[in-house]
């Protein structure tokens, strides 16, 4: 099912395996940069940029605690699954850009993996037996309905535009047009806005972090997690953020498309995309969480269904009309 332009199968597998450590390092590094910038914007010194690595290693070495009331198998397995699914989603994206390959429907897979990782976190939390976990679960489900629909419609408009569900085709379209998707077509510009609006909610960042709200429900689903499980959830969150921002920048703002056909600069293109992803991370996660107060569930839900949903519907309609 590979519709590759460039890579051989072996190359693709090597690249895919290589991406796992890359995803691990880059997602935690971006998380650290995010924390540092957030701190500097608040006139704090902030932690060192590699603090997430320290946290990860420290948490891994801690005792595993499972609450007596928790259904222990679900409680212990889900962190691993959540981390695996969000790392996998990043790995699929990275492999495509690095090796110039992808398979039909991989965007759908990425969409599901991203939703999976946040659903798994909340299910894990609700299995802990803690009432705060249960409240976090119900809040997260409400938020999922709020932002996943516009996000899915935004994906749909891209599928309609590029006539494919393959990630690499989206990049190829931009290379062929010689411009970014969001700049070339009005439908894609609208779609990009809807997508970017959904990122803070998907990343559980203030103002949309209702499901984790630390001052209200003590991190909701994460309330009973500690040690290695928490480390895996933190990794899952960081890599799903990376995946979201990387997806947004390659899908709508593939900058290398502006410079030539892109045939000779796969690694260069990858690095440019990563930097763009960092900028998007800053704009969609760091800035909102610095300048806004947390919303309530109802307010956040209303925001997505009044602002983001109509935008994504417009994107789909425009895209179907061929604009």
């Amino acid at each position: 099912m590979f519709c590759g332009v460039k890579g051989e199968t072996m190359d693709v597998i090597t690249a895919f395996l290589l991406t796992f450590p890359i995803v691990f390092v880059i997602s935690l590094l971006f998380d650290g940069i995010d924390r540092k910038i957030h701190a500097r914007m608040q006139r704090r010194v902030g932690p060192p940029i590699i603090q997430p690595f320290y946290d990860f290693i420290k948490l891994l070495n801690k005792e595993r605690i499972v609450p007596a009331m928790a259904s222990s198998q679900i409680f212990t397995v889900l962190p691993t699954l959540a981390a695996a699914s969000s790392i996998l989603s990043s790995a699929i994206l990275f492999t495509s850009v690095m090796s110039g390959t992808s398979f039909g429907g991989d965007l759908v897979v990425v969409f599901y993996l991203l939703a999976m990782s946040s659903v798994l976190v909340t299910i894990g939390g609700s299995s802990s037996g803690n009432p705060y976990g249960a409240i976090g679960f119900s809040r997260k489900m409400t938020m999922l309905i709020a932002y996943e629909v516009p996000l899915l419609l935004s994906f749909l408009s891209v599928f309609l535009k590029i006539n494919s569900t393959s990630y690499y085709n989206a990049i190829l379209t931009q290379v062929k047009v010689g411009s970014m998707l969001a700049l070339a077509f009005p439908s894609m510009a609208v779609s990009a806005v809807a997508f970017l609006l959904c990122i803070p909610a998907a990343a559980d960042a203030v103002p949309f972090d209702v499901s984790e709200a630390k001052t209200e429900i003590i991190y909701g689903p994460l309330v009973e997690y500690s040690g290695p499980y928490l480390a895996l959830f933190k990794l899952a969150k960081a890599s799903s953020n990376l995946s979201l921002t990387f997806l947004a920048c390659t899908l709508f703002f593939y900058l290398p498309a502006l410079f030539g056909d892109g045939d000779s600069l796969w690694l260069g293109a990858f690095i440019v995309c990563l930097l763009l992803a960092l900028i998007l991370w800053f704009l969609t996660i760091t800035v909102p969480r610095t300048v806004f107060a947390r919303m309530k569930v109802g307010q956040a839900f209303k925001f997505y269904w009044i602002v983001a949903l109509p935008l994504s519907v417009i994107a789909v309609v425009l895209s179907a009309l061929g604009l």
Binding site: M41, Q42, R43, R44, V206, P207, D209, A213, T215, R289, T290, V291, F292, A293, R294
Partner: peptide, 11 residues
């Protein structure tokens, strides 16, 4: 801080 506005809290 309670309403999640950490920047105002720090300021």
């Amino acid at each position: 801080y309670e309403i999640g506005f950490d920047t105002l809290f720090m300021f």
